[in-house]
Design a protein around this nucleic acid. Structure first.
Lengths: 111, 111
DNA sequence: TTCTTTCATCGTTAATTTGCGATAAGCAAT
DNA sequence: ATTGCTTATCGCAAATTAACGATGAAAGAA
């Protein structure tokens, strides 16, 4: 397509789409769930828990960080990852808003 | 990467990721919201409401249908689109489940 | 200092996505 | 039958993503 038209849509749609994109890969969903179960993981342990190489896991973590869903803190030679409370608060707000919008109509589609 | 490793992850992560991918573009978020506001849209009206060509809108609708979030019903020469109640019930279940898993830890990350 | 460990980044390859115009397919008229 | 409208699909170009190995950079241990 040459040019992506993301800018043509309103800010909230873009934000929701960006958030959804961060979760649009099973590896990233898996990372989020691992972080939910045990609240802090060293990067290397995440690599051991996932069927992916170190560089690939690092790349997925970078995307989750860019989306604001995950935080990393340097601890000597290692990096400790955990979920970002503010990022997930926003996610909850956006997703909850969308699902609420849908509640009225989704139950009565007569087309 | 050559080979995508989606199969290496558990079914629920894959399902959640597929759902997120369907919402990972602002055009598709916009379509869902339009369908939420007015419960049935003819394809051509969606095209008029979006800054995209007919073929591109049709493509996005195809992806939303494949994800089970949208239904299309042929009505003479036109096609009437609306949200899929069962698809959104599943989405609510999966997203709600994820957010619930996060509730415990996301508020207390001390890394 | 030198070595080792840990992680991020670079460069590459393959696949997928986005977007469009053009074409086909279906239906309802004329 | 032919025409006109509506939507889906095809084929293409450009961009992005997924994955990996290899190479860096930073910190701690020897």
């Amino acid at each position: 397509m040459a040019i992506h038209k993301h800018q043509e849509f309103d800010a909230e749609a873009q934000e929701l789409a960006a958030l959804a994109k961060a979760l649009a890969h099973p590896a990233r969903v898996a990372i989020v769930r691992l972080l939910a179960r045990r609240q802090a993981w060293v990067c290397g342990d995440l690599v051991l828990a996932l069927p992916l190489s170190q560089s690939t896991v690092s790349q997925h973590l970078k995307e989750l960080k860019a989306a604001g869903l995950v935080q990393g803190e340097v601890d000597g030679p290692r990096v400790c990852y955990c979920l970002s409370p503010t990022g997930w608060a926003r996610a909850r707000q956006l997703l909850g808003g969308l699902l609420a919008e849908l509640l009225a109509t989704a139950a009565s589609c007569g087309c």
